[in-house]
Design a binder for these strands. Structure first.
Lengths: 142, 142
DNA sequence: CCGACTTTGACAACCATTCTCAATTAGGGT
DNA sequence: ACCCTAATTGAGAATGGTTGTCAAAGTCGG
């Protein structure tokens, strides 16, 4: 389930675990503020080390998954299969990602939402979700 | 580079290696005929074993990549990050995949193609490619 | 301040994928 | 057909991201 997967989760909040604001979780959230492109769990772990706040690698993974579950971060897979993360706005959106520098732009498009629903309905599919990522070369890297 | 990545490869055929029709490659192509949903390299390797034609795992991986490069198969990542493969038509298309049984429908949509190009252009991005996957529950599994 | 429950961290375990390299095979002359 | 050379294969080792384990430390309600 990727973060681009909103749109059919009408359930208010199915009794989620408390989610305590521990030092480590806050630290992760804090590093997430420091960039606006997608980074791997390992990179984030390293950044945490650099800034003094050493957080265990396993904890970084756990925290990122947790945040993703709670819709606090977007997840996607880089072209070589790594999971990469990024803070995101809480509305449904997609990403336009620069293939060379990783710069990311959040984009929205009712047209696509409508199209996917229509196509799915046409084939009798229900409980639809979708992933859309656009890759390209940004103006600065061109 | 995923198979949904056509559209900017205007180069005719940049001196591709010969690509010999070996026994193993033919065997892989043959198994690919036997199903119409996405399967992992490991599953394909196992199917090959079952049908007597034992092909080395490494070779299966190599062959699938090769076929993907040549546009003979579609590649995508399952939700848990595995690469999965499927024979495909040679036109640009996307997939509507059943979350529970894996049934796959190829779908086309000029609207989406136009939309992604427009969005990308609007942000000054060039050399665009995109991935779009739609997941849902098919009529038979509903 | 206490006890129950969470969370953490170091490290081992997993597992898909890739690498290595010697042995085999296919193709193109001759 | 027969060589020669380059491509291909297979078995196993190596890699690397991610998850599991479990004892130690932290957090919260009462």
């Amino acid at each position: 389930m990727t973060s681009t997967d909103r749109g059919h989760d009408a359930i208010p909040d199915p009794a989620r675990p408390p989610l305590r604001p521990t030092k480590q979780r806050l630290a992760v959230l804090d590093v997430l503020e420091s960039f606006d492109d997608f980074r791997s769990a390992q990179e984030i772990h390293e950044l945490l080390g650099d800034r003094g706040a050493g957080v265990g690698l396993a904890t970084v993974y756990r925290t990122l998954q947790l945040l993703a579950d709670h819709g606090e971060v977007d997840t996607m897979r880089s072209e070589d299969g790594e999971s990469i993360y990024r803070r995101c706005s809480d509305t449904h959106h997609h990403h336009l990602v620069c293939r060379s520098c990783g710069a990311t732009v959040e984009v929205e498009g009712p047209a696509v939402e409508r199209w996917t629903s229509a196509i799915a309905a046409e084939h009798g599919f229900s409980q639809i979700s979708h992933n859309l990522e656009i890759f390209g070369t940004c103006p600065r890297c061109a």
